[in-house]
C-alpha cells in the first residue's frame, strides 16, 4: 500500500480523463460485441451473444458504442485543435526519431548491453506508439464500420470486392486493436511490476512524485527548471 500522504502529481487532466473514459467504455463494448459476432460459430461467441441480449441487441449495442467512440474521436479532435492544453499535449505526443532510438536503447538496456534505461519526457516511446497505433486502428475501424453500417448505400457505390475487403479490414484491425490493448496498454499501465494489479490513474489522474521522477525524468527536470 502506498502511503496516504505521499506526494502526487496530476498527470491526466480532467479533459484527458473524460476522453479516456469515453474511449474505454466504447472500445470495451465494441470489442465485446464485435468478438461475439466474429466467433459466433463457437460456444464462446454464442454465450457472449446471449449475454449481450441476443443477436439483434448485440448489433444495437455495437452501433451505440460506435456512436460513442465517434463522439470521443470528435471530442479529441476538437480538444487538440481548439484548446491550448490539447494542442500542447498533441505536440508532446508527436513521434520523433528519438522515440525509435529510445526503443533500441530500452531493448539494449533490458538485455544488459546498456547500464542506464532511456530517459523519457512527458510521453515515452511506449505511450506514443500506443497512441498512434490506437489512433490509426480506431480510424480504420470507424471508416470500415461506417461502410458496413451503411452497406445498403455503399453496395451501390463500391464494387463487391471492396465491401468484402472492408469486412476483412474491420475484423482484422479489430483483432489487432484488441491484442494491442491487452498486451501493450494493460501491461504497461496496470500489470507491469510496480503497478500490478491495477492503476487508478485513469480515474483521479494522479501519479506519485516518485513515479513521475522515475518514469518521466526529462519532463520532471524541465518543470523544475521552469519553476526556478
Amino acid at each position: 500500500m502506498k502511503e496516504r500522504d505521499e506526494k502526487t502529481v496530476l498527470r491526466l487532466s480532467i479533459q484527458v480523463r473524460v476522453q479516456h473514459f469515453l474511449l474505454m467504455l466504447s472500445v470495451t463494448m465494441l470489442i465485446l460485441t464485435g468478438l461475439a459476432l466474429m466467433y459466433s460459430d463457437s460456444w464462446l461467441g454464442k454465450l457472449m451473444i446471449f449475454l449481450e441480449g441476443g443477436f439483434e441487441t448485440r448489433g444495437f449495442l455495437h452501433r451505440i458504442s460506435a456512436i460513442l467512440l465517434f463522439l470521443g474521436v470528435i471530442y479529441h479532435w476538437l480538444y487538440i485543435s481548439l484548446t491550448r492544453e490539447g494542442h500542447e499535449e498533441f505536440l508532446q505526443i508527436l513521434l520523433r526519431l528519438q522515440d525509435f532510438r529510445d526503443l533500441g536503447h530500452a531493448v539494449l538496456y533490458d538485455v544488459g548491453l546498456r547500464s542506464q534505461p532511456p530517459q523519457f519526457g512527458r510521453y515515452g516511446y511506449r505511450e506514443k506508439f500506443q497512441y498512434w497505433a490506437m489512433g490509426i486502428l480506431i480510424l480504420l475501424m470507424l471508416f470500415s464500420g461506417i461502410i458496413l453500417w451503411y452497406h445498403n448505400f455503399f453496395l451501390g457505390v463500391l464494387p463487391k470486392w471492396a465491401m468484402d475487403l472492408t469486412l476483412v479490414v474491420h475484423g482484422s484491425a479489430g483483432t489487432i486493436l484488441f491484442l494491442f490493448l491487452v498486451l501493450w496498454h494493460f501491461y504497461m499501465v496496470h500489470w507491469a511490476p510496480g503497478k500490478f494489479p491495477f492503476s487508478m490513474t485513469f480515474w483521479h489522474g494522479k501519479i506519485t512524485q516518485e513515479e513521475w521522477e522515475r518514469e518521466h525524468p526529462l519532463e520532471c527536470m524541465q518543470k523544475k527548471n521552469e519553476n526556478q
Partner: peptide, 30 residues
C-alpha cells in the same frame, strides 16, 4: 440501392481462399 457494382467481385467469398483475389491477399497480410 444496389447497382451493377455488386457484380464486380465474387459473391461467395472466403477470405482464406486464394481465388478471392485482393480479399485473400489483404486477409493474408493481416
Amino acid at each position: 440501392r444496389v447497382t451493377a457494382m455488386v457484380a464486380r467481385g465474387k459473391i461467395h467469398v472466403l477470405p482464406t481462399e486464394p481465388s478471392s483475389g485482393i480479399v485473400y491477399w489483404v486477409s493474408q497480410f493481416f
